[in-house]
């Protein structure tokens, strides 16, 4: 147990030092990089390591007769989480989410330090000491708190309420709700039941499983399957339509949505927000193909009222493309990202 805790303490100390050095710039901030695509798991893994490290350090200090007070353990743990979220994770997390995470972490720290009577007594002891103020020094500290705490609270309140020149927060919906049906080039499509006419097998029948087997594979990057190359001159059926969709995409869409469909096209950064990143699991991977068909056809201007603020300048592509071309582009987007459209079978 002691050996295990020593290793944990060593990892914890090294991790904290490295993180601090990266944050203040003593070592390059990308020494330990967060890898795109693996970030979510990496973040959890790092937090587990840090908690193990803290436990080890705490254990070792107690074993050496220098037990760290529970009160400061709690405060430091919470401060660490806040700083980690603020400085470690890049791109930066918006304040609203950091506030949520911070509040939950605070509650969890409280649950930890008050889980049993003994710990709770240890935790509140310094607070009680200050309130009791039995020595002159602590009495001064109490008066200092009496002045500093209201000032801090007042300062935060003032800062929160004072009018600022920055743009206001927007409660923008990422996925505006689609209508039940949409009319494109004179034909009505029911979004719940319509299907992409080009998602077909070699016999020309609609076949989701067949097309799913042909999409690129996701791993370290996205890899095309050797037997499913749309640019093969002999490619037929689904793969041929993917190629045609790709040609339409690169003629019309990639300027904004990017070569890799990640929303970072040539013109992307002229907009805020930049165009949708189709490679993110939160976009087309969550939606039915008909949703994309509707969004592409109607563009930003065709979004429903309840989807405001729209913040989308995508043109209504029904004015420039045929229905077949739109379906093929949608087909290509799913193929290229390696995602499968949502179905309910």
């Amino acid at each position: 147990m002691k050996a295990l805790m020593s290793v944990a303490a060593l990892i914890g100390a090294a991790g904290i030092l490295l993180l601090a050095a990266m944050t203040v710039g003593i070592v390059p901030s990308n020494t330990v990089r967060l890898l795109e695509g693996y970030m979510p798991v990496q973040v959890v893994f790092e937090l587990i390591l840090f908690v193990a490290g803290f436990t080890g350090i705490s254990y070792m200090m107690a074993a050496m007769g220098m037990a760290f007070p529970r009160f400061w353990q709690g405060i430091l743990m919470w401060t660490f989480v806040i700083l980690y979220l603020k400085f470690r994770i890049y791109p930066p997390i918006p304040f609203s989410v950091r506030a949520m995470y911070g509040a939950v972490s605070l509650v969890c720290v409280f649950m930890w330090v008050s889980a049993n009577e003994e710990d709770w007594k240890k935790f509140k002891q310094p607070i009680m000491n200050v309130l009791d103020a039995k020595t002159g020094g602590i009495r001064i500290l109490r008066y200092a708190y009496l002045i500093i705490l209201p000032l801090l609270i007042g300062g935060f309140s003032y800062n929160a309420m004072v009018p600022k020149s920055e743009e206001p927060i927007e409660l923008r919906t990422v996925h505006p709700a689609p209508p039940a049906s949409t009319k494109v080039h004179g034909k009505t499509y029911t979004l719940q039941t319509s299907q992409n006419p080009y998602r077909v097998n070699l016999e020309g029948k609609y076949d989701q499983d067949y097309s799913n087997a042909m999409t690129v594979e996701q791993g370290m990057g996205r890899l095309m399957k050797p037997n499913a190359n749309p640019w093969d001159k002999d490619a037929q059926g689904y793969l041929k339509y993917v190629r045609e969709g790709g040609e339409i995409f690169y003629q019309n869409c990639h300027f904004c949505h990017g070569d890799n469909l990640n929303g970072r096209g040539l013109h992307a950064f002229a907009f805020n927000p930049i165009p949708a990143n189709f490679t993110d699991p939160g976009t087309i991977a969550q939606l039915q193909e008909t949703f994309i068909f509707w969004r592409v056809s109607k563009g930003g201007i065709g979004l429903p009222n309840e989807a405001a603020p729209w913040a989308s300048v995508m043109p209504p592509w029904e004015q420039h493309l045929t229905v077949d071309e739109i379906w093929k582009v949608v087909l290509f987007e799913y193929w290229h990202t390696g995602y499968y459209p949502r179905t309910w079978d």
Binding site: P92, P94, E166, E167, E170, V174, P273, P281
Partner: peptide, 23 residues
Amino acid sequence: HTIVMTPAELKAMGGQQHPVLGN
């Protein structure tokens, strides 16, 4: 999934989808 943020935060994030939060 739908994050509340200022346009400045949106720009700093480099798009609508965050590589950690998005997942």
